[in-house]
């Protein structure tokens, strides 16, 4: 995909999207805003899992870091929410850098274990430090705009989602992005060609954590209430299954996954809280039988479509 084509498609899609508030009611706008949040989360998680082959279970936790940093600053110190979101993003990227340096030189399994532990610990700390975080009651935070309107938040989230997609596009289709995929396909071969494997992974992890922090910060101020639900493993699971079902390692996959699953979950909600179970079963089937997700299926159906990008199993232990 050339740069011009990417920007054309992106801005055309964003232009169409920006017409939505004219035709949609509050409820449907809310669903769109939540979908945009998941789009940002799933796309940035995809950078890590789909392009460097590292599975982090702390992506929702980093969104929580962004949300709580910004929220606590606004509530306790009266910091402007916009500045808070930026500080929250910075905090998430710093923590991401720390966790990344700590466990990425060991790679694979260690990162997954540590990030799982990290998100569980974050949950415990948030629940226990009631005075600061209001625990499971949730922290009430001020909004981003003076006068509350769904349309304003929709445009804010749309803008943030565009920034996220542009950052990811720039990174993935640069030389660095080439290194990402080289590391994913064969670590040793990449290292032998002079790619600093650990540095590449840490870079991907830091960028992806920062983007999660940004998404979480904005989302928290939109909801006006930050609860331990944002950094929970259930949310992490939703982001993961959106990416897996949409298509891991493809640029569009998480975008499609985020919208389709969020909209689907609204339909399932009418029958009760079954959406996590249903998504889990769908994700299991997709990950097992179509590891490249919906995008992979589409690519194999269309003649002359791009070949699936990833998941050539390497031989032996890595």
């Amino acid at each position: 995909m050339t740069d011009i084509r990417f920007y054309l498609i992106l801005f055309a899609a964003a232009g169409l999207f920006s017409l939505l508030p004219l035709g949609l009611g509050d409820y449907h706008l809310h669903v769109m805003i939540v979908s945009l949040y998941y789009l940002m989360m799933a796309s940035s998680w995809n950078l890590l899992a789909g392009y460097t082959g590292q599975v982090s279970f702390a992506h929702a936790a980093f969104a929580g870091i962004g949300a709580y940093t910004s929220g606590i600053l606004a509530v306790k110190f009266g910091v402007n929410p916009w500045a808070g979101v930026i500080i929250g993003t910075a905090a998430a990227s710093l923590l991401g850098l720390g966790v990344g340096v700590l466990c990425l030189r060991m790679g694979g399994i260690y990162l997954s274990l540590t990030t799982l532990g990290f998100s569980e610990i974050l949950r415990i700390v948030i629940t226990n430090e009631y005075d600061i975080t209001r625990g499971t009651m949730g922290l009430q935070v001020p909004g981003l705009v003076e006068e509350y309107s769904k349309a304003a938040y929709f445009y804010i989230m749309l803008g943030a989602a565009m920034i996220t997609l542009i950052v990811l596009y720039k990174l993935i289709y640069s030389n660095k992005g080439l290194c990402f995929r080289a590391v994913q396909n064969d670590e040793r071969a990449a290292a032998s060609l002079g790619v600093d494997v650990v540095k590449v992974r840490v870079l991907a992890f830091t960028v992806s954590s920062a983007l999660a922090g940004l998404a979480g910060g904005l989302y928290g101020h939109y909801l006006h209430l930050i609860t331990p639900e944002i950094p929970s493993l259930d949310q992490q699971f939703l982001v993961l299954s959106m990416t897996v079902i949409g298509g891991m390692g493809s640029f569009l996959g998480p975008v499609i996954g985020a919208f389709s699953l969020e909209i689907l979950s609204e339909y399932i909600r009418a029958y009760g809280e079954y959406h996590v179970l249903v998504f889990g079963l769908i994700a299991l089937v997709v990950a097992r039988f179509a590891p490249n997700g919906l995008m992979g299926l589409a690519a194999s159906r269309l003649p002359g479509g791009p070949a699936p990008a990833v998941t050539v199993p390497s031989t032996g232990k890595s």
Binding site: G53, V55, G108, I109, S112, F237, V244, A287, T311, G316
Partner: peptide, 12 residues
């Protein structure tokens, strides 16, 4: 041979 998918599958 693909450790990443086993992590994802068991997590799901």
């Amino acid at each position: 041979g693909n450790d990443m998918y086993s992590l994802i599958l068991t997590f799901i």
